[in-house]
Write a protein that binds this DNA or RNA. Structure first.
Lengths: 266, 266
DNA sequence: AAACGCCATTGCGATATTTGCAACAATGAA
DNA sequence: TTCATTGTTGCAAATATCGCAATGGCGTTT
């Protein structure tokens, strides 16, 4: 778990230092995990990285996320329509986890990788989830807070509350350079049969490549994709539309983790 | 590693039996891994399954596969053109590992999941790799052999040799119900800058949904997608086209695993 | 070109962790 | 309600792990 997207490969010594475990132990552990293909080692550079076994296991997890099963097809379709990279993300603890991504072929594009975590307060999808999950904003405020990613990141609780109120009434969220300089995004919610928000679908684009008229179109298409996925998951538009916030509220549990993951502990 | 696509969740007792480890040990191990989110436990059914941590790690692996980075965009584009689910797969040991998949929105479609392994001799992509990797066919024959998946699966070494000769000269492979009853597929090779085959791109479809005229179009589009990805990976068409088999041959090492994964062992 | 320094690996003893059994607790079925 | 199955926990024996130091292999520096 000391590997990350920033440092996908480490030497034995680096791992040893990070984990505060002696080199000999790391060496033995790495060889053991390599034999099970959970790690792999470049014989030339001697750097260690995640192995194919982990990928196989990870695929097993994502297969069991109902959202991913329904969203895959709509996602690639959305990419073709809006001509920008699109993503499906879910709430994971106090962060936003990208579980599926489809990239446009354009040279100028924003790249978000599957499996990557991002802040809730600085992303369109994250703000949408903050808006639809009562209590979540406060929980995040107490734990990680709202670090600034760019000069446009909303870092104050008061301003976030205001922003979320607008998102709540619109049922849709935008992001203008709050996470990455020059990049914008929009996100639509995805509901399941019970009317609960289970994730978001978002389009991410370089602001320089989007004209004013494009914005509306991208937003509409994204919203429509979210609606389609919701329907395929059993969501009943006519029944739930007006009730969405309340149902989402009723179903929400403070520890958002507990729904998907069970912390087993006395 | 006792989890699979067929059995994505197991009880403590089942794990204990499969691993020949006492229930108490499994219980403690599971709780430990749950705390690290590598596993998760459904509190109601008490079934254990792979956790989000494994997914995060797996994403780290796939990010480092150069092929996946270049192919993602072309893949979704191919799906839109041929209107059938498409996949990118690589050689992993003696099997074919699907590393990326994009599904069509059609109701009638063939579903292959990322992270799933399939037989080489019963798939279009697998046969293509068998054709381009000298020695691989014999290695597979000795290890797993060629189990029949359907009545049309080619199970004899002699007939496979004949089939592969045809594929080699065509540089392209088809599959008619050799893996799944009613399903067909075609696959094109993907080469890297060194002219080595690094993977295949394939389209999978229900044979009932494809007319005779469609076949040619799907094949052409798939082949073209493979070529595009190859080029983006630095492949030089004019130089390599005629040399592909030989270069691929020269670069091939008997243990295909060793390229990607380092078996660390005395 | 040669020597140096760094990094990873391995043998070995002392230590600490894990194991397996058994009983307990909890859940679901009859 | 009772039975049967399944998962969790305490405890002592036993095993595997840890850390150290030395070896071997590489890349780098002078």
């Amino acid at each position: 778990m000391c590997f990350s997207h920033e440092e996908p490969e480490l030497s034995i010594g680096e791992i040893s230092r990070r984990l505060n475990v002696h080199k000999s132990v790391v060496s033995r552990l790495v060889t053991a995990l390599c034999s099970k293909r959970m790690l792999q080692k470049d014989p030339k550079t001697r750097k260690v990285s995640i192995g194919v076994g982990a990928f196989t296991l990870g695929a097993l997890f994502i297969k069991r996320v109902p959202l991913e099963q329904h969203a895959a097809a709509s996602l690639s379709r959305l990419v073709e329509t809006v001509e920008h990279s699109c993503h499906i993300a879910v709430l994971e603890g106090h962060r936003l986890l990208t579980i599926a991504s489809a990239e446009t072929r354009k040279a100028l594009r924003v790249i978000l990788r599957t499996g990557e975590y991002r802040y809730l307060h600085a992303t369109a999808g994250g703000k949408l989830l903050l808006a639809l999950h009562p209590g979540l904003l406060e929980a995040v405020a107490e734990s990680t807070g709202f670090p600034a990613m760019t000069t446009k990141t909303i870092t104050s609780l008061a301003r976030l509350r205001k922003e979320l109120a607008g998102i709540r009434s619109a049922g849709f969220a935008w992001n203008f350079e709050e996470s990455t300089r020059g990049a914008g995004a929009c996100a639509a919610p995805i509901f399941d049969a019970s009317g609960q928000v289970v994730g978001v679908i978002s389009a991410v684009y370089p602001l320089s490549a989007v004209s004013k008229t494009d914005f509306a179109a991208i937003g509409d298409k994204t919203r429509e994709a979210g609606r389609l996925i919701s329907v395929s998951m059993g969501w009943q538009p006519e029944i739930c539309r007006s009730e969405v916030p309340s149902i989402a509220a009723a179903r929400f549990v403070p520890s958002a983790r507990s729904r998907v993951h069970q912390r087993v502990e006395a």
